[in-house]
Simulated scan of single mutants.
Amino acid sequence: MRNGHGPRATGTPPRRAPSITALAWTALAGTLLLAHALPDDGPRGTTAARARPSSTRPVVPAARPLPDADPTRIRIPAIGVDARLTPLELDGTGALQPPPASDPTLAGWYADGTAPGARGTAVVTGHVDTPAGPAVFHRLDGLPRGTEIAVEREDGRTALFTVDVVEEHAKEGFPDDRVYGSSDRPELRLITCGGDWSRSTGYQANTVVYATLTGTR
């Protein structure tokens, strides 16, 4: 098992910030998500990452933002995700701490950023794999446009998001503003490792799901 490598940044984003800065990207693009060790006879290649069409135009109009409330669970029936959410914080180096690899079913949310369902850009991350094999976001890159994502919250509400687009971004030259930029509507980003795998540097890209709040129950 090896971690990827990414640039380091400094500073601390404010609590309930409308966006995540390059600081949080440090971990998401580099050290957050583990690369599954491959057999010695054939590591994946190191070709450039592939991006899907770049429009994030919502499938349906965004719903009214919800008040702040911590999320507790994420469900994506289309790919069999039903995962508890744990809050993630920055470590002493300014990198976002990952969900524990000891529980591959667990996902995490950036607790000092936007709460899922509130106005702005919320971020949820999860491992694509761990030493035990496939993890919570192993099938994230296969989500079609229009898929529903449900995030349960401590206030008893469930925020319903609709997938606008799924993209694969190379870690080198990652589009921070596009992924973490502020928004005047309630949006969600799901992030895991993706692309090709290098034995020396790990995964070469990140899979990013862009989704918009479209309902509540």
Rank of each mutant, 00 (worst) to 15 (best):
I74N: 01
L88R: 12
A69L: 04
R73S: 00
E89V: 02
T56G: 02
L85C: 05
V59L: 02
D82S: 06
R84W: 01
A83Y: 05
R44T: 14
L90M: 12
D68M: 08
A49R: 10
R52W: 09
V59G: 01
R75H: 07
I79W: 15
E89F: 00
T47E: 14
P53C: 07
G80N: 10
L66H: 07
T46M: 10
P61A: 10
I76T: 04
R44L: 15
D70E: 15
A63T: 13
A62I: 05
R75Y: 03
R50W: 11
T47Q: 14
A78N: 06
S54W: 01
T72F: 00
S54K: 12
V60S: 10
P87F: 02
G45R: 13
P61L: 03
A48W: 10
P65Q: 03
T46P: 04
P87A: 06
L66G: 06
I79Y: 14
L66I: 03
L90G: 00
E89R: 11
T56L: 05
L90T: 05
T47H: 15
E89Y: 07
V59R: 09
T47M: 13
D68R: 14
R52S: 14
V59W: 01
R52Q: 13
T86F: 03
P53V: 08
R84A: 07
P61H: 01
I74V: 13
R50F: 10
P53R: 15
L85N: 03
R75C: 00
P67E: 01
V59D: 00
A49E: 05
A49F: 05
D70N: 15
I74G: 00
L85M: 08
A83F: 06
T47G: 15
G80W: 09
P67W: 00
S54Y: 01
R73K: 12
V59P: 00
R64V: 11
I74A: 06
A63F: 10
A48Y: 10
T56W: 02
S54H: 08
P77C: 00
S55Q: 06
A51D: 04
R50T: 15
V81Q: 08
L85S: 02
R52L: 10
D70A: 15
T56I: 09
R44E: 11
P77D: 08
R57L: 13
G42S: 13
D82V: 00
T56P: 00
R50M: 10
P43H: 10
G42I: 07
R57G: 06
A83D: 05
D82P: 01
T86S: 12
I79A: 12
A48F: 09
P43F: 12
T47L: 14
L85P: 02
P87Q: 11
T46K: 13
A83L: 07
S54P: 04
R44P: 11
P87E: 09
P77Y: 05
A83S: 15
P58W: 04
P67K: 03
I79M: 13
S54T: 14
R57D: 10
D68P: 10
G80A: 05
G42D: 11
A69G: 08
A63W: 12
L88P: 04
L88G: 03
T47W: 15
T46D: 14
I76H: 09
I79H: 13
R50E: 11
V81H: 08
T46N: 11
G45D: 09
G45L: 00
P67F: 02
A51K: 11
G80Y: 10
P87T: 09
T86N: 07
R75K: 12
V81R: 05
